[in-house]
Design a protein around this nucleic acid. Structure first.
Length: 887
DNA sequence: AAACTCACG
DNA sequence: ACGTACGTGAGTTTC
């Protein structure tokens, strides 16, 4: 069967609105030389590119609303009444949006008396009758009523380039309704944005329930006599006329007098000249560069580069001076650079490229010097990885200048892909493929056999590093992030590499013993649980466990997940005492976790030197924290005694050495006291008071610490946590197992006691809404795209993030500074001690016994002088034979 | 690959 | 009317 023709229909007003508000926080950054706002045009263009590439349509039409008066306003005077006026910054963009469409070769259409929806409905119907496959793009979920087997409705979510596609199956899955029933639902619920009310007290949930039972509004009223007396029935009867009216309003016309024919919507592609003119007029520089990059060869083709395969013979050609512009890229077979096979390397030296598969060449004096002599400044992608991998070849990388990965992350902490190709694309640099494109993925991943193809890919990487340097460093400077890069992140990358390379010694025998102990206890527990359940099942399967607990044993269901019963710890704890099986399951879970994740997990990653070498991800978290992988050494158990014993397996790498650990006490709350300027809180820290007890006194209105009960302190501690996380009454209530009302009272009492904190919370959210991002003490920046969203959940989440990120992120900044200073200090003092681990607010070392005393003095001193805040930083230390003993 | 659960700060 | 505490990584089951 021949492939169907495809028609793309776009709801112009709706998508423009979405684009405008999605980029609302960027509003003032998108203004062209003539003073025109361009954010909606920009967003619209991104959406167009994406959907055109995806659908590859033969016909395209963008429909617009013609004006305020439509047949709906005639039928219902208040239709769309009370809707706030379109902002001037948006309405001025519409004429240019139409210009954009013209340049894209796309027709647009509007029809007096009708809305864009009706044009779309009508065209969709006509096209379907002609055997087309139709895709509709809109920001308005109401259009899902048009969904059929041949019409897909793509609703923009979260900005404009992400879409959710509705097929009849998806509508059914999402609402439990047929597409045609959407209008019945709207009739019942009304639509506040269109200002028609529907039936009193009927929301989505109720509407869906009614429609599942009666099929349609008509069906409901035919059977209403049989419904038993209820408030709902009363409301349905009172608002009967309204329900039918609203259904009519919600129904999209499929027979509007649209004059545009299907044939007239044929799409013949973009008009390149017009596009260039238009982008120039809009000052869309990045789009212009993209056009240029794409001109040489139609489509996705990448330019060719001449690469010299490097051999001992071709060394002679290398023309090097310290002034040379050098980029270096080392290719590895997978992302564990401590163990990965070497695939090759490339140098860009001025305008020439040299590549080889044989990394042994790097050991040749000429190249080794190039990498090790600090007079040569080298640009890289991921300096930490390059440093650590070269260390395996006995080479110490020195003179790192520009680190593309690191700089790109600092510019936007949400951009955390670590593929050079994808990362370059996000900076509008398209002349390098992704690794997946060149190497394939998963089991199929392999290095290309063809030298030409492979070396060119490497060369393009080196070129991208080099080409992006100026632009990104400029942006860094504009953001006032130079210090963050030069003084913190870049030096830190080498400190981290050294810590990873040092690794921490693991006592394999100890883990082996734990493994057999856990194995025995687990199988005993297993038998007991089977007995109590009356049958054998997989205890590790939440699904099977749910059936046992809630169906067979008929225990009450506390919480559901989207696929079934929740069996999480919180739930099981509520069921305690109702059946002996619960305690056994909890214990089983605890031991199974320790066994699989920690005992067996750790045993699996012990290297041949008897150590584990984690990798710290420096460019991942949105807040600036590190993370640790393979293994994760930042979540080794500590809270429960049983789990804490895992730490006995972490030992010094030499006899007569010890483990030494120091941690910041309450660093996040101290940071908060500093940045909020709250006098009372600062005072409490200056006097080194128990901060949770202090909070308890404040919120319970006590005047003496002796009046603070353990329970009050516990609740106050939860409030302090809540404050750091960006408080919500709901979240706090959950954490102290209390009511929302109670939580709200705590919050109010807290804010009354700490007015500076209250003011900070309001101001930071305000600031985030205005500039679209928040910053830490050292100008680490996190963009909050949803901060002005109309979606309550998205917006609330962004608001909490705005409150939390400067706190969590500044604490991360501080310990990073401490780490750099510490590494220098160890060197300066000529100590053998080694810094091994960082766990967000603590540093872990190993050292000869006779250096411990010195460390106990030095480490806290370095840590608490990392920055100077309005409150002192407090550091606590401990040492012992194993990590377990540093308490 | 997604969902669930649970370990850490 | 709605559903959230902030930031992570990893193991197991299920589809």
């Amino acid at each position: 069967m021949a492939e169907k023709k495809r028609l793309l229909l776009i709801d112009g007003n709706s998508v423009a609105f979405r684009a405008f508000f999605a980029m609302h926080n960027q509003l003032e950054r998108f203004v062209n030389h003539a003073g025109l706002h361009t954010n909606a045009i920009y967003g619209f263009k991104l959406m167009l590119d994406k959907i055109l590439a995806e659908v590859d349509p033969q016909n395209v039409l963008v429909a617009f609303d013609a004006g305020k008066v439509t047949f709906r306003t005639k039928a219902y005077a208040d239709y769309k009444g009370g809707r706030s006026k379109t902002p001037g910054e948006l309405s001025e963009q519409f004429p240019y949006l139409k210009e954009l469409l013209t340049a894209y070769g796309i027709k647009n259409y509007e029809l007096p008396n009708y809305e864009a929806d009706d044009i779309i409905g009508t065209m969709a119907k006509r096209a379907e009758d002609e055997g087309y496959q139709v895709t509709i793009v809109t920001g308005d979920r109401d259009l899902t009523q048009l969904t059929t087997d041949n019409t897909t409705v793509a609703v923009t979510i979260k900005g404009v380039t992400e879409i959710e596609k509705y097929t009849p199956e998806h509508v059914l899955e999402k609402y439990g309704l047929e597409p045609a029933q959407i209008i019945d639902m709207k009739g019942l619920t009304g639509d506040s944005s269109d200002n028609y009310p529907g039936v009193t007290k009927v929301g989505e949930k109720t509407a869906i329930k009614l429609l599942k039972q009666y099929g349609s509004i008509e069906g409901i009223y035919e059977n209403i006599a049989e419904m038993k007396k209820s408030k709902l029935k009363e409301n349905l009867l009172t608002d009967q006329e309204l329900a039918f009216k609203c259904k009519e309003l919600a129904t999209i016309k499929q027979d509007a007098p649209v004059e545009m024919t299907l044939a007239q919507t044929t799409w013949n592609g973009k008009d390149h000249t017009k596009l260039v003119d238009f982008f120039e007029e809009m000052d869309f520089k990045s789009f212009l560069t993209q056009l240029d990059a794409k001109i040489p060869e139609e489509g996705e083709a990448i330019s060719h580069l001449a690469v010299t395969p490097l051999t001992t013979e071709t060394f002679a050609k290398l023309d090097l001076t310290p002034d040379s512009d050098i980029s270096f890229y080392l290719e590895l077979a997978d992302d564990n650079y401590h163990t990965a096979d070497f695939w090759g390397f490339v140098f860009k030296i001025d305008e020439k490229y040299y590549a080889s598969r044989d990394v042994e060449l790097l050991k040749e004096p000429k190249l080794k010097t190039l990498l090790e002599d600090e007079r040569f400044k080298i640009d890289v992608f991921d300096g930490k990885q390059t440093y650590a991998a070269l260390d395996r070849l006995g080479i110490t990388l020195t003179g790192i200048n520009f680190d593309l990965l690191l700089v790109s992350y600092l510019l936007n902490t949400s951009d955390n892909s670590n593929d050079l190709g994808s990362l370059a694309k996000r900076h509008n640099y398209l002349d390098v493929k992704t690794d997946e494109e060149v190497y394939g993925k998963g089991a199929k991943k392999k290095v290309p056999a063809d030298d030409q193809l492979y070396f060119e890919h490497l060369a393009h990487k080196a070129k991208a590093i080099s080409d992006l340097e100026d632009q990104l460093m400029e942006e860094l400077a504009q953001n006032k992030q130079d210090e963050l890069y030069f003084e913190i992140e870049r030096p830190l990358s080498l400190v981290l590499a050294q810590m990873e390379l040092a690794g921490i010694k693991v006592d394999r025998e100890r883990l082996d013993r734990m493994q057999s102990e856990f194995k025995e206890r687990l199988s005993e527990l297993e038998q007991v649980i089977y007995q109590e359940a009356g049958e054998e099942f997989n205890i590790n399967s939440p699904k099977q466990l749910g059936v046992i607990l809630f169906e067979k044993l008929k225990l009450p269901v506390i919480k559901k997940t989207k696929t079934g019963y929740s069996t999480a710890v919180g739930v099981l704890e509520k069921l305690r005492g109702m059946s002996p099986i619960i305690d056994n399951i909890l214990l089983y879970r605890q031991l199974a976790k320790l066994q699989s994740t920690y005992v067996e997990g750790l045993l699996k990653v012990i290297a041949s030197d008897g150590k584990v070498h984690t990798r710290y991800t420096q460019t991942l978290t949105a807040t600036g924290r590190l993370s640790s992988v393979d293994p994760n050494l930042q979540n080794i158990p500590v809270r429960l005694e049983e789990g804490r014993k895992i730490r006995q397996a972490f030992v010094p790498s030499h006899p007569d050495w010890e483990i030494f650990a120091s941690d910041y006490s309450q660093i996040e709350l101290r940071v908060l006291a500093h940045i909020s300027g709250d006098e009372g809180m600062q005072q409490a820290f200056r006097e080194d008071r128990d901060i949770h007890a202090n909070t308890a006194m404040q919120i319970f209105g006590l005047d003496d610490p002796s009046q603070v009960t353990p329970n009050m302190r516990r609740q106050a501690k939860a409030v302090n946590f809540g404050i750091v996380y960006g408080i919500s009454d709901f979240g706090l209530a959950q954490s102290i197992n209390s009511t929302r009302k109670q939580a709200k009272e705590f919050m109010e009492a807290y804010f009354a006691s700490f007015p500076g904190v209250h003011r900070y919370m309001q101001e930071i959210v305000e600031q985030a809404k205005e500039q679209g991002y928040v910053e830490t003490l050292f100008h680490r920046r996190r963009y909050l795209d949803d901060i002005n969203s109309r979606n309550y959940n998205l917006r609330s989440f962004a608001e909490r993030t705005a409150m939390n990120t400067p706190i969590q992120g500044s604490a991360a900044d501080i310990i990073k500074v401490a780490m750099i200073n510490m590494q220098k200090m160890l060197q300066k003092e000529g100590l053998q001690a080694k810094m091994l681990l960082q766990v967000h607010d603590e540093l872990i070392f190993e050292a000869p016994k006779d250096e411990i005393e010195k460390l106990a003095q030095l480490v806290p001193q370095v840590m608490d002088s990392a920055v100077s805040l309005a409150v002192p930083l407090k550091v606590e230390s401990a040492s012992g034979k194993t990590w377990f003993d540093t308490k």
